[in-house]
């Protein structure tokens, strides 16, 4: 028997529609954020999912394309290139290993921050470049950003040599009346917009005052904004990704 207090009628309704899949996109994103921080809710959701799971067993099978497993293996091994990436790695399972591909891009493991970076967060470490580019050490960083299913993954590639950031959604897009906007949040600073993430690679310049000494405290965040980005210059929508980058 559950020892948790019963959910309110509103929450029970949300659980029902989340599990069935009928919440609108915005509602779904907001609800998933709650699941991260409300164990009672999460438990209830998992319980209902399990109860309905036998339904999935009665459907027809469809054999996947022959090369599919190889792609999965490749993604796990970190040999995929940005253009082929459709999936992400990361999380707090302790299986972190950054495998730097010598060529261009490596899959990097996200590590959830011990400090706790908010509802939907995959925390990475960011190395930022200031006016003086470091001569030694990693020159480029890649992260595949996952928000635990609330949004399609993003691939973020930071190149110190040119001071550019490439951001690309890995799967299909955001709701047609919304945009994802990328923010750089330096320590003790207000978020600075780095532009709207479209369905193509976005070359961004790191802010000129991005400072390597503030590595541990700087954060990239992505919020869900009205189409075209925030109208106010500050984040107005919910944070759907938040994290930092690990060097290759």
């Amino acid at each position: 028997m559950s020892q948790l207090p019963p959910l309110s009628a509103e929450d029970a309704a949300q659980v029902t529609e989340y599990v069935l899949g009928t919440l609108s996109l915005d509602e779904r994103i907001a609800f998933e954020a709650r699941l991260e921080s409300e164990p009672a809710l999460s438990l209830d959701v998992r319980g209902l999912e399990q109860k309905l799971a036998p339904l999935a067993a009665v459907g027809d099978e469809v054999t996947p394309s022959p090369g599919l497993f190889a792609k999965i293996e490749s993604a796990i091994a970190g040999q995929g290139t940005v253009s082929n990436l459709t999936v992400i790695e990361g999380g707090k399972t302790g299986r972190d290993n950054s495998t730097a591909s010598p060529v261009s891009v490596a899959l990097v493991w996200w590590r959830r921050s011990a400090i706790g970076m908010g509802a939907i967060a995959a925390a990475l470490l960011v190395a930022l470049v200031g006016t003086q580019l470091p001569q030694q050490g990693p020159q480029s960083y890649v992260a595949v950003v996952d928000s635990n299913g609330a949004q399609p993954p993003l691939i973020v590639h930071v190149d110190l040599r040119s001071g550019t950031v490439l951001v690309r959604p890995a799967l299909a897009s955001v709701a047609s009346d919304k945009s994802l906007e990328l923010w750089y949040i330096g320590a003790n600073s207000a978020p600075k917009s780095m532009g709207v993430v479209e369905n193509k690679s976005l070359d961004l310049k790191l802010p000129a005052d991005a400072n390597k000494s503030l590595i541990e405290k700087a954060v990239f965040a992505v919020t869900l904004e009205p189409k075209g980005g925030s109208p106010t210059g500050k984040p107005t929508g919910p944070v759907v990704y938040k994290g930092t980058l690990i060097p290759e």
Partner: peptide, 19 residues
């Protein structure tokens, strides 16, 4: 798109099996 999702699913299974 469905096969893209399928790939994603298996990576999540790989990553989260311990959970």
């Amino acid at each position: 798109a469905a096969e893209d999702v399928l790939q994603d699913v298996y990576l999540r299974i790989w990553r989260n099996a311990a959970r």
